[in-house]
Design a protein around this nucleic acid. Structure first.
Lengths: 148, 148
DNA sequence: GTAGTTGCAAATCATTTGCAGTAAT
DNA sequence: ATTACTGCAAATGATTTGCAACTAC
């Protein structure tokens, strides 16, 4: 079954909230969109097919998705809150430049394996993870050499 | 010497920025305060000893501390950006329970080594890192079995 | 029918910015 | 001297909220 959709319906049910067409539309669009979208970007995408969906509804629904554990809120350089699906299958990690904010995504099976075994050691069943390495990218290292 | 202070002075120097009394005061207060303070909270603390320090100056300086790698911006439940000192010597990672919020800290030299080599591969000079594993702790796994 | 939801517009509030005076280089 | 910095007040802009109409239950 569409397990993520079911998870959301379960969450709504258990909390006395209702399953509405807007909530389903927003979840679907969120799942099919690239990661790291902001509420506004999601709103614009939805808007093109559903001209009368509300701005506030997207905000409210994204908040629900975060509370239900389906999405995580993330903050990068800019002012907006961005959302990322919590899909345990995908393990991509981030290198983030302290200076220019550039974000490089990478994957690493050996890291994956170590994380799994660390979780096991503490009897955790992993749902998702976040790994961020901060530092200076090669461009910004060069830059900070020049300015004397 | 007070290495963090020196780091900051270096950063300022290399970027053609000036070392001012306000910047030094803010860094000192940041270092002696509990972690996870917001710019506003820091401003209020500073204000009590330095009645005419400006709100905007605190914001601008915290931004510099983040850019220089001395502090990290974090976001928790509320709307404010909170700051955390980056102590590069310490590499502790977090296991966080989705259900009860329990946080377990752990360390792992093998993970450390892999992270370092991943950064190297992309020509990043690492300043600090964040690793969070989300899932269900052993207690909460048991619990979720019960509810059908 | 009842209680939660929506879309809109207005409000909020953390953060940013313009500016004239001040301080570091 | 020159250029960056500060404090203030005003501006910005992402997010939230009040409300009357609507929809899921």
């Amino acid at each position: 079954m569409g397990s993520v959709e079911d998870l959301f319906r379960d969450y709504l049910g258990k909390h006395g909230l209702k399953i509405t067409r807007q909530r389903e539309l927003i979840l679907e669009e969120f799942l099919r969109s690239p990661s790291h979208l902001s509420a506004e970007e999601l709103y614009l995408r939805l808007r093109s097919n559903n001209p009368n969906i509300g701005y506030a509804t997207v905000y409210r629904t994204m908040k629900l998705l975060a509370e239900s554990g389906i999405a995580s809120e993330r903050h990068f350089g800019d002012r907006q809150t961005r959302y990322e699906p919590n899909i345990s299958e995908e393990h991509h990690y981030h290198l983030i430049c302290n200076n220019c904010g550039k974000i490089i995504e990478f994957e690493d099976d050996k890291i994956d394996a170590l994380l799994k075994s660390a979780a096991k050691e503490y009897n955790f069943t992993l749902s998702h993870q976040r790994l961020e390495l901060y530092g200076l990218c090669s461009d910004c290292q060069r830059e900070s050499m020049q300015s004397s």
